[in-house]
Design a protein around this nucleic acid. Structure first.
Lengths: 136, 136
DNA sequence: CTGCAAGTTAATGTCAACATGAGGTCAAGC
DNA sequence: GCTTGACCTCATGTTGACATTAACTTGCAG
């Protein structure tokens, strides 16, 4: 399988696969006259990379997981990533609820809506000292 | 309220607020001897920006929503953003399920696990033509 | 044999969202 | 009057994940 075929299969540009290779994520099975050749296993690997990216991992993080030797090491990395995903889920759910309210509320200047202020406050970690004089 | 105080309140660097201003997201209420002055309303605005960023919006998108005049225009923007958040939720949930399986599975080379291959396939939009000879 | 599409490396450009640094201003405290 | 610290503008640097371009080689059709 040549680079063009593999790239087209996932609607990627070939240089993306070369980039991933340069980043240490995807080493071709062989070279034929200098051209890269890939196998079925590489298809799974590319799928894995795409899925991991969709979950918000950086190429560096993906490389760590793919390179991890042994179950223990990989488990630790995955644990961290799992927690991170859970955090993101909460974060996005909060933003979503906020938007739902904004659409219902319909006040001309939504920053003046007391409901909105309450939601924003509760959804954001405040670094206020307790007893601060400026009450938002 | 000076820029340093507002920034510290959210654990931001002052130059971040200046950057947001340069991007058209946050205009100070006034200037005193050239120094920016902010009000309580700006606190809400900063919170809004932070929350929107946490939801994955770009500064440009945030500016559009904040600048939107009229309920209709804002509603349209929010609708789009709401759909986008829903998509992200699904995406992240899929990645999370994948990771959960990886942690349970524990095969030495997880890319060989048939369960894994099935999950990755189902979780990724494939651009294969039906009847393609290479069956992953 | 001649083209041409697809591959190669290497260098450089892009984009967003800041970060950093230079050089200057301003009010307060000693 | 002099220092200190927070502020100012303007310019340039950084990061991650590519995108683009240049200049070259190779595989295959006609």
């Amino acid at each position: 399988m040549r680079i063009g075929e593999l790239a087209e299969r996932f609607d990627l540009a070939p240089h993306v696969l070369r980039h991933w290779e340069a980043m240490g994520l995807l080493t071709p099975a062989a070279r034929v006259n200098g051209r890269r050749r890939y196998t079925r296993d590489h298809v799974v690997r590319v799928l894995t990379i795409i899925r991991a990216k969709a979950g918000g991992m950086s190429l560096e993080q993906i490389r760590e997981v793919l390179d991890a030797t042994g179950r223990a090491e990989r488990r630790a990395l995955l644990q961290a990533q799992h927690a991170e995903l859970e955090r993101k889920l909460q974060e996005i759910a909060a933003s979503k609820r906020l938007i739902e309210h904004l659409m219902e509320c319909g006040a001309e200047d939504f920053t003046q809506c007391p409901d909105y202020r309450r939601m924003v406050e509760s959804a954001t970690a405040l670094h206020d000292e307790p007893g601060d004089t400026c009450v938002i």
